[in-house]
Structures are given as C-alpha cells and as structure tokens.
Computed example of a mutant assay.
Amino acid sequence: MATRLVCWPGCCGHKKNEEETVIVEDSYPRFLLWVDAVGGFLVCTGEQIALGQAVPGTTVDIPVFGDLSRRHAKIWREDGQYVIEPTQQVCLNGKKISKRALLTDGMEILLGSNVELTFRKSHALSATARLDFKSSHRTQPSADAVLLMAESCVLGPRMKNHIVCQDWTQDVVLYRHADDLFCRASEPIEIDDRVHDRRGKLGWNSHVSGSEFALSLERV
C-alpha cells in the first residue's frame, strides 16, 4: 500500500509560506488477472490494503466508483487472518464498527451507505482472500472481484478455489517466491511463447496457456 509522508510548513527548516512536501512511496504490485471465459480480477499483493473512492490521482489499492471517502477503510493481513479498520462508516453483517474487526469467510461488508462486498476466505491451504461485490459498484480499473493475494492463488474447478473455472479439469496455481511470481500446473505450460515443464516464472504482463486454459497478467 502506498505510504504518504508529509512535511508540514514550519518544520524541518521550512518557511511557513512554503507548501507541504509530499513523498509517496512505491506501492506493492497490483495487477489485473484476465482468465479466458471466466473474467477479470484485480489482484492486490500487499499485506495492508486501502479502499476508497476512485478519483484522479488516488493512491488506494482498491479504488471504487461509489459514494465513499478517498480513504474509507483498510484491510490488514496478520498471521493468515484479515482485519478491517474503518476510517469512515463501515458495517459488518449489518452492525456498524468503530475499530478493527476480524473478517471471516462469508462476512458482509458495507462501506458508506451502499457499497456492499462479501469477504471470502475458503481455501484451507492458502491465506489468500477474495472480495466480491454484492452491489453494482465496480473498481477502477474494472474487475469482477478483488483478490487479496498472500502466498498463492488457486484457479480451477473446485468451489473452494479462489477463482472457480468450471470447465477446467485441473488446478492452476499462481504463487509468490521472494519478490517473484510463478505459475504451476500438472502439465507443460507456455509462458510468453516459451514452453515450461509444469512451472515457470511470470512477468507482470505475462500470458500463460495450457491445453485447456489461458490467462494474462496486466500490471496496474
């Protein structure tokens, strides 16, 4: 998540009539994951995720076209669990919260008066979670859902997978190792026109295909 450091006028030797100095650090990588015949997903890889209104120049990880503040809430991943911290009005399962609260699988999140999300964390072997929109709101860039990616993201036919691909017969896994992203499957896969024996390293704009699937990454 991007961090905003502000040096106010009058501090650090600045004159009072000088404007504030703002430094925005690099954010954790985000990318769009396009899965053929399934949909598009906004993938956030940071442990701290900010949600807010989609406005020009925003630094939030999940910008939403809706009646929200610019930084409406944060979601933190801690020891494989997720907590949400409200900055503005947030309700969980219909109850307004004023401090950090634990998120569990199936919990309903209401941001402001009408942005509705469902939190999903159904895969027992992965700390990755998913946010599905119940309301008609969408992210910028537009995506069908948001993935909060921990160590791995599992795609395949089983309902517990992070992305359910009903027409597939096998699972495909995206996983992180150090600062790199990899893909593995149970068959040879082609990554950016090069064939790999069941696994290979991805770039942030890679295209991956197998005998029954195709997916693409797009850095945002």
Rank of each mutant, 00 (worst) to 15 (best):
L125E: 14
S113K: 01
S126K: 00
I75G: 13
D132A: 08
H72P: 06
L125S: 13
L131C: 11
S113N: 06
A124E: 05
H123W: 06
K96Y: 09
K121M: 10
M107A: 05
S122F: 03
L110H: 00
T118R: 15
I75E: 06
D79N: 09
S113M: 07
L125C: 10
E116G: 14
D79Q: 09
R71C: 11
G112C: 13
G106S: 02
L103W: 04
L131R: 02
L102F: 00
L103P: 01
A124V: 14
E116L: 15
H72R: 14
R120T: 06
E108C: 03
L103R: 04
R70C: 01
S98N: 13
S98W: 02
H123C: 06
L92G: 10
R100K: 10
S98D: 13
G112W: 12
L125T: 08
L117M: 11
S98P: 07
R130S: 12
L102W: 01
R70W: 03
H72M: 09
E85D: 00
K74M: 12
A127V: 02
Q89I: 10
K95N: 14
L111E: 08
Q88D: 11
K74C: 06
I97T: 14
A124F: 15
D105L: 00
S122D: 01
K95M: 10
W76I: 12
P86F: 06
N114D: 15
I109N: 08
A127G: 09
T128E: 03
L92P: 05
I109K: 10
E85L: 12
K99V: 14
V115L: 08
C91N: 04
G112N: 07
P86M: 03
R70T: 09
P86C: 04
A129W: 02
E108T: 09
G106Q: 04
D132E: 11
E116Y: 10
Q88V: 03
H72C: 04
N93W: 07
M107I: 13
D132V: 09
H123S: 02
A101Q: 13
N93I: 09
R130T: 09
S113G: 14
